[in-house]
């Protein structure tokens, strides 16, 4: 191997090792967040600093504060389990009952304080025949 190849290989090994270090599976990295199913969360009573949860907004569960329209709480469900989520900030336009959402934040007292709320991207809006106007 010539010196160019050796140097390139060394750089590659260093950077890849750095990537592995940053995302170490067992390390509690500031760059990673664990994904929980709603069912998993309902069995946990302790506090978790960082969680990411996906599911659907439970119909009629959205409560928007009368004092501040940016302050909202709702339940996210998956199968038969649900978890309460509180969120302060601008809500995405597609946020409504039964919308598919991904929330990230902290978990405490059986509820998520979300710092991030995303709805399914509009570009993946799968029209549903149940909504079609029928004769």
């Amino acid at each position: 191997m010539n010196k160019v190849t050796i140097s390139i290989s060394i750089v590659f090994v260093i950077v890849v090792s750095w990537i592995f270090y940053l995302t170490n599976f067992k390390q509690d990295s500031s760059l990673t967040v664990r994904y929980y199913s709603v069912g998993e969360l309902s069995d946990i009573s302790s506090q978790i600093d960082k969680v990411k949860v996906g599911g659907y907004i439970k119909p009629n569960s959205i409560i928007i504060s009368e004092d501040d329209q940016l302050d909202a709480s709702f339940f996210v469900y998956q199968n038969n389990d649900s978890v309460k989520v509180s969120y302060y900030g601008i809500r995405p336009d597609l946020f409504k009952d039964d919308a598919e959402v991904v929330v990230s934040g902290s978990y405490n007292n059986s509820q998520i304080s979300a710092t991030e709320l995303q709805t399914k991207c509009a570009s993946r809006y799968e029209g549903d025949l149940k909504n079609i106007e029928k004769i």
Partner: peptide, 9 residues
Amino acid sequence: NKIYVGASY
């Protein structure tokens, strides 16, 4: 465990 990395990574 399903672990995500965010934009910061």
